[in-house]
Amino acid sequence: MYPSRFRYEAPHSLDEARSLLAQYGDEAKVLAGGQSLVPLLKLRFAAPELLVDINGVPGLGHHRVEAGVLRVGALCRHVDLERSSVLARHPLVASAAPLIADPIVRNRGTLVGSLCHADPQGDWASVLLALGGHVVAEGPHGRRPIPMAEFTLGPFQNALRPGEIAVEAVAPAPRGQVSGRYLKLERRVGDFATVGVAVALETDGDRVVRAGIALTGVGPHTIAATAAEQALVGRPLTAATVEEAAQLAAEASRPKGDHRGSVAYKRHVVATFVRRGLARTDLEAVA
């Protein structure tokens, strides 16, 4: 791999990292797991002047649940989540982790890096969107939370300001009975999703109190299937409500036809996956 010439810094503190970023502005890029950035450097699609390697910055490798809230640090790798034992109340996260890329990529790539990269085919953005999560940014003007729904501006564009670094991704504490599942149609392990669907449910008895449904790979960015979510909230999961949600989610998708499938196919798979994602929680109701 022969990228363009760049400067490389490996700061040992967040402050140092922030000041380097502030100094170089748009010309600097954070290097986390490198699983998206390095391929871009290789192809010379990205040619930043400075790489700020944050792998030596302490205190970013964590993921933990505090009062039900899941906090994932900027250096928490996909594999950490895949092997985690604290995700019992975050089944969507647990089910998505082993579906990201392949084992080699999972060993290095990070969830936060994936959110920052804002690839419309990145899986984690859907997961965080379905969970109603947010990203914590630190910059020259301090610390601020950015709701996931506002974090992605477009393909490969995030809401971080120049000089800002994402330190954590946060998923709120779920209430009641929790279920969730990530469904992904891929042609091969390590392939990006043809269609990905994140489903997160919180139920109280047989009533849905919160529903999160987000779609990967079927639009210019990750899509929150808001209408589908609303069709479920306050109602029980029945064959009819599930079907309604599935159809609304399919309508919310904006896929492009390409060598992975036609528009009709991708919409159909969205509906199928929503159905399956919900069926998991209440097989009887859907059968």
Partner: peptide, 16 residues
């Protein structure tokens, strides 16, 4: 060309 790198040109892995 569609299939000029390993993201688009798929070789099966041991998994599948």
């Amino acid at each position: 060309m569609v299939g000029s790198n390993y993201m688009d040109y798929l070789l099966p892995t041991a998994w599948e």
